[in-house]
Design a protein around this nucleic acid. Structure first.
Length: 802
RNA sequence: GCUCUCGUGGCGGAAUUGGCAUACGCGCGUGGCUUAGGACCACGUCCCGCAAGGGUUAGAGGUUCAAAUCCUCUCGAGAGCACCA
């Protein structure tokens, strides 16, 4: 009999479907609920091998949990709004909805071929009104609480995508989607006040079982810093320049101020700036520079002095010049800084270049020295009048008080900008009325349907929806006057910020989810997805969860208790897979050659899950051979076998050790070593089939079941079992088999292996020493030398030091 | 530039966390069995050496009875941050 995966897999996929084996009830007697979730995919067309890597090993974990006795919910859906649908639609001249829903159909079929445990009755598609209605509903709640607001401000603009981006999506001056350069553009936009939640978002990180790296990234992104706001009066004027600093102790060393090119002061004091022409020229140049250029040119600083304008150092009362430079960011703090060249590297560099004064005020040896570089450490105050010799950390608070500074906490991140000037997204449910202003659409009128229009090509700064008169023209819900709808749509990250809640109650038309079901399932126990979402999706989702908690709609404050990242599969050449490189691995082809079980198994076996790595085209042969051998071996037990197994002890020991190892490893998502343990077990059983029993073969199948669901169902059935193997439970190991009675003890001389000894567990040192001295090898190696010292580790080793 | 993580055969990778380095698999070699398929089976496969033995975890040094694992430096790779005042 030969292993025919194609036949077996189709058969069992049908079986699972007709038996509804994976549709999950909200409550099952005697079983604990376990919510297992993988980040839902974008419906891009076909499942590629990267998708397989995200979903198949994650499914191994879910199946393992199910076998352990949990009532596992593992739902799947599609993050269906977004730019690529529009772009594909424009290119192919079909409606984005049609394109998206077609893709979803294909992908659902491909998912079924993967043999996953998904409960398709809970599927979510975010571009359908039944889903995005609740985006709008949540938006209105945020609006009601003042957490959604409209503002005209410079925003990140990607000219390729013709859209505004959130800061999280414009990292490093590049668009997260197309990698094109990001420019600044003034535009009216909707923002969500995520910064109100900054401290909670920071504090609650500690309680999460997340990769440390990811937590650090979120911490850095939020970027909390404690400091003070200090005002510097402008000479001969009532105006003041407000700055933010974390080093108030260095105020005595402030020798100039710098404002960002966008700072309002320049315009206000235009008339007094003597060199206004060269200042304007500088501002022009700075504006033309893209964010990217500003960063790459960060090495050499540029700037112009605002001649005719000086400020007063509030500590020394001395006049200091004011400069404009693009090394100061408009978006952080107040857009202006106090410069302390002696104690800040950037200021030092700037001062050196433009010949500005450098005054040391903190010193590690209490003396004022010639500085070759900025001194950023702690020390005692110098050149600071009465404060001299005081530790700088104490001087800090003293100075803030003396100069009427205000303690302040600043955050690096900004409010979340959600307006998108695009068609394929959730309409923002706001109506503009000349009399009443921005009026929320009443709840009863939700959803505001996305109209079917025929021309959704983007236009700079304006949503395609603005061209649909039918959509735009409406009546003010408050006063009934003619009014206009908001035409921007929401960032698709809004959709994914709460979808995990919707899975618990996906068809609810009365609320986003029934609180009873929410309590039954949430928070998510295990969440799996790419590390690239560390500061986007994962931060937004945490924010939404906290908001919905505050609204009393859910009973938990963190959505994902445990988080794991998968790695990325690279092409055979070690490069990122792409069609242009021609190094794309086609999973469908592999499935038709080797079967889905082999593909699943190989993806788990190829290395550490969170690392990924290059694809090895012959590697899959190894696991395929293994499955084939398992098929042949277990097949032997489908007929009654003689019960003469004489020496099953040895195999029994190994089996129990394997049960422990495979369970422990899957729990840690170390799938590769779990599989290698299964291989070792099968190798051993194959060598001694006469010492194996049917029960052993059954245990082996259960251990293999999470990895190779189709094959194990087939073999389980062949052994005479009528019900699915997934209605069984994970085998238990007994301690007596885990601990061997005899252990192999290593004998070392000076730390080098010389001999081995098989001894009873727990044997004492003296007894062992005696045995060691009788060993020929040891006698020879010792060559009559007497051990000076003997190190003994029970059941492990004895080391003779000569 | 800064921070973090990591460097183990021809390749993917193991190593109970300081205690037998190279498990498991790929590839390769030899032989067998097959009328060929990316099949299967057996044996071998870190380096030097006929052997006894010796050497080996990027490189150099250190701590220790004992180091892939801990410390220091150098080199290399990956990730994150990159004017955040």
């Amino acid at each position: 009999m030969s292993y025919n995966p194609q036949k077996i897999e189709a058969k069992w996929q049908k079986f699972w479907k007709t038996k509804k084996l994976y549709s999950v009830k909200d409550l099952e007697k005697g079983r604990k609920n376990f919510y297992h979730l993988v980040m839902f995919p974008y419906p891009s067309g076909d499942l590629h091998i990267g998708h397989w890597y995200n979903f198949a090993p994650a499914d191994v974990y879910a199946r393992f949990k199910r076998l352990q006795g949990f009532n596992v919910m593992s739902p799947m859906g599609f993050d269906a709004f977004g730019l690529p649908a529009e772009q594909a639609a424009i290119k192919r001249k079909i409606h984005p909805e049609k394109w998206t829903l077609n893709n979803i159909k294909t992908m659902v079929n491909q998912f079924e071929a993967m043999g996953n445990i998904y409960d398709w009755s809970r599927m979510i598609i975010t571009c359908l009104p039944e889903y995005y209605k609740w985006n709008q509903w949540i938006f209105l709640k945020l609006f009601e609480k003042g957490l959604a607001y409209r503002k005209k401000a410079p925003a990140n603009w990607c000219d390729n995508c013709k859209s505004i981006l959130a800061n999280e999506q414009a990292e490093g001056g590049k668009c997260w989607r197309c990698e094109g350069p990001v420019e600044q553009k003034e535009i009216d936009q909707w923002l969500l006040r995520i910064t109100d939640y900054a401290d909670r978002l920071l504090e609650d990180l500690d309680s999460l079982d997340w990769p440390e790296r990811t937590k650090i990234m979120q911490k850095n992104w939020i970027g909390r810093s404690e400091g003070a706001e200090i005002e510097f009066p402008i000479s001969n004027s009532n105006l003041k320049i407000k700055i933010f600093t974390t080093r108030a102790d260095t105020v005595p060393g402030v020798t100039y101020l710098v404002v960002a090119p966008e700072h309002s002061l320049i315009k206000t004091l235009e008339a007094r700036i003597r060199n206004i022409n060269s200042v304007r020229e500088y501002l022009d140049r700075a504006r033309r520079k893209s964010e990217l250029e500003r960063m790459t040119e960060s090495k050499s600083k540029s700037g112009v002095e605002l001649q005719g304008i000086t400020a007063i150092n509030p500590f020394t009362k001395k006049e200091v010049p004011v400069w404009v430079s693009d090394y100061v960011l408009a978006g952080y703090g107040t857009g202006a800084i106090m410069a302390v060249p002696a104690h800040d590297e950037r200021d030092f560099e700037f001062a050196k270049k433009f010949g500005l004064q450098i005054i040391q005020v903190v010193s590690d040896d209490g003396k004022s020295n010639e500085l070759k570089e900025a001194y950023t450490g702690d020390g005692a105050m110098v050149n600071s009048k009465d404060l001299d010799n005081l530790p700088n950390n104490i001087a800090k608070d003293r100075i803030i008080e003396m100069i009427n500074g205000k303690k302040k906490i600043n955050y690096r991140f900004h409010d979340w900008l959600i307006s998108r000037q695009r068609y394929w997204g959730t309409p923002i449910p706001i109506i503009y009325c000349k009399k009443c202003g921005a009026v929320p659409v009443p709840e009863k009128d939700l959803p505001v349907l996305l109209p079917k229009i025929s021309d959704y090509t983007p236009e700079a700064g304006k949503s395609p929806l603005a061209r649909s008169e039918k959509f735009v023209k409406t009546k003010c819900p408050k006063c009934g006057d003619p009014a206009e709808r908001e035409t921007d749509t929401m960032d698709t990250f809004v959709d994914s910020s709460w979808y995990y809640i919707r899975y618990t109650d996906p068809k609810n038309s009365k609320s986003l989810a029934d609180i009873k079901k929410v309590k039954e399932w949430l928070p998510v126990k295990m969440y799996i997805g790419g590390a690239e979402h560390a500061v986007m999706h994962l931060l937004y989702a945490r924010f939404f969860t906290k908001f919905l908690y505050d609204e009393g709609l859910i009973n938990f404050q963190e959505p994902f208790l445990s988080l794991r990242h998968q790695g990325i599969i690279l092409g055979t050449d070690g490069q990122k897979m792409s069609k242009s490189r021609g190094n794309v691995v086609d999973p469908d082809e592999l499935v038709s050659k080797f079967g889905a079980d082999s593909v699943r198994l190989y993806l788990c076996f190829m290395g550490e899950y969170h690392l990924g790595g290059p694809w090895n085209p012959t590697g899959i042969l190894g696991v395929h051979r293994f499955l084939n051998r398992a098929y042949q071996f277990v097949g032997k037990f489908s007929k009654p076998v003689s019960k003469t197994s004489k020496n099953k002890e040895a195999v029994e020991h190994l089996l129990h050790k394997t049960i422990k190892k495979v369970g422990d490893d899957i729990e840690l998502q170390k799938f590769n070593t779990a599989i290698s343990a299964l291989m070792v077990l099968l190798n051993e059983m194959e060598k001694n089939p006469e010492n194996c029993t049917k029960e052993m073969a059954e245990s082996f199948l259960k251990l293999l079941a999470p990895f190779a669901p189709h094959l194990t169902e087939e073999l389980w059935n062949n052994l005479g079992n009528k019900k699915s193997i997934y209605l069984e439970s994970w085998p238990e190991y007994s301690k007596k088999y885990i601990i061997d009675e005899k252990v192999e003890l290593i004998i070392q001389i000076n730390g080098r292996l010389r001999d081995k000894l098989l001894v009873a567990r727990g044997m004492q040192q003296l007894e062992i020493e005696e045995m060691v001295m009788k060993s020929e090898k040891i006698k020879q190696a010792l060559n009559n030398a007497k051990p000076k010292k003997i190190i003994f580790v029970a059941d492990k080793l004895i080391n003779l030091v000569v």
